[in-house]
Computed example of a mutant assay.
Amino acid sequence: MSELFVGLMSGTSLDGVDGVLADISGTRLAVLAYGSAPLSQALTEELLALNSPGPNELHRAALAANALVRVYAHLVANLLDQAGIKHTEVNAIGAHGQTVRHQPQAFDGTGYTLQLNNPALLAELTGIEVVADFRSRDVAAGGQGAPLVPAFHQSVFGRLGETVATLNIGGISNLTVLGPKMTDDVLGFDCGPGNALMDAWCRQHLGQAFDADGTWAAAGRVHVDLLAALLEEPYFDQPAPKSTGRDLFNPIWLARKLERFTSVAPVDVQATLTELTASACAVCVKRYGFESKNLIVCGGGAFNTHLMNRLQAHLPSLQVDSSQAHGLHPLQVEAAAFAWLARKTVRRETSSLEAVTGAQGARVLGGIYPA
């Protein structure tokens, strides 16, 4: 009997929403339909703005969440049409929401994480049970609440007897190292910026959402002193488990770092930001995933040829390739993960990993909103 779940993901890169309809009834997840939906410029700008303090935040955040959920609902309808599936046949939707603040363990020892979402509205619009708010329980248990996908990576990319390194490059980059025992020997954490700084700089200077194929960065030269200044950020030296987001790696952070480098050409800044992502990720792989023969890359960064080339240059002993070569399209991985996580929640199964988040133990993640 089929177990059908929808997974929805709108990541820190803010390049749209990815969605999958997956059958998770067998030993392997099977993607039945995949789609993506763009965010309007107005919604993108509002979500970016809500990453920082501003006026009337509660009102604006509530309306932005409603607007985001309407995009979600439209994408769900498209997935069902594509697969010829009725909404009554779907067990649940896993909807992560849009992270706008991530401050685990901060301020009062517990901290918080905030994903804009309105799962009640999504259940109302789709007629399907919704699972949301995946991070909060782990944070309440003393964890980072991120990354959430290493357990899923183990289920789809793990290989008995081999160490496997998986790198997701969205707005933020995160590394998963899967041990050879296929049990709970899994490590995962955020390396630092992924596409977030590159995309912001590209929007500022080219008016484009991202540096397609890394062409602009490839035309520039890495500014060694600027790169060294960027890598002075204390986060890079923190041990795992750790997590980060736009709270730290944002245009304000970059502007502050650039104050001493006003003469650096914009194209060279882009080249340096790309090198920052590549080098920060490579350092993490060398430290934690050195036994792996492959680095499996997913997320939007997998389509940045220049970035992929730089990763390969930093990691000559590994084969750096896209998750497509390992059975799952790079833009489907995180959405599929939230379909998988939703199934775990519905079945009341734990899906967090203590070694990944630093929580007091594995927890059942997410809240359920019945249809």
Rank of each mutant, 00 (worst) to 15 (best):
E3A: 03
G11C: 10
S13N: 09
T27A: 07
R28S: 10
L29W: 02
L29F: 02
G35C: 02
L39G: 06
L39I: 06
L43F: 08
E45T: 10
A49F: 05
A49S: 13
L50A: 04
N51Y: 05
N51E: 14
P55T: 14
N56D: 15
L58Y: 08
L63Y: 05
L63D: 00
N66V: 08
V69G: 07
V69S: 11
V69W: 11
R70Y: 09
V71P: 12
Y72T: 01
H74V: 05
N78M: 04
N78K: 05
L79W: 00
K86I: 07
K86F: 08
E89K: 09
V90N: 05
A92H: 09
I93S: 07
G94A: 08
G97P: 08
V100K: 09
V100I: 15
Q103S: 07
Q105I: 13
G109V: 08
G109T: 08
L114V: 07
L114I: 06
Q115I: 10
Q115A: 10
P119T: 14
A120D: 06
L121E: 13
L122D: 04
I128V: 15
E129T: 14
D133R: 10
R135K: 08
S136R: 15
V139R: 04
A140N: 12
G142Q: 12
L148N: 06
V149H: 02
A151S: 03
F152L: 03
H153F: 04
L160Q: 12
G161K: 06
G161C: 10
T163A: 06
T163G: 04
V164M: 10
V164Q: 14
V164F: 02
A165T: 10
N168G: 05
S173Q: 11
T176Q: 03
V177C: 01
P180S: 13
P180A: 15
T183A: 14
D184E: 07
D185W: 15
G194L: 12
G194N: 11
G194R: 15
N195Y: 07
A200R: 01
A200D: 11
A200G: 06
C202W: 00
R203Y: 00
Q208P: 03
D213Q: 15
D213H: 15
D213M: 09
A218L: 00
R221W: 04
H223S: 03
H223F: 01
L231R: 14
P234I: 06
D237Y: 02
K242V: 02
T244R: 13
R246K: 12
F249V: 13
N250A: 09
I252T: 15
E259T: 13
S263K: 09
A265F: 11
D268C: 09
Q270D: 02
L273A: 08
A278W: 07
A278K: 02
V285Y: 01
R287H: 14
F290K: 10
K293P: 00
I296L: 09
G301F: 09
F303Y: 15
N304A: 06
T305D: 14
N309S: 12
Q312F: 04
P316T: 08
S317T: 15
Q319D: 03
Q319R: 09
H326D: 03
L328A: 04
H329K: 13
Q332N: 01
E334Q: 09
A336Q: 03
L341G: 01
R343F: 01
K344I: 00
T350W: 02
L353S: 00
Q360W: 00
I368N: 04
I368D: 05
P370Y: 07
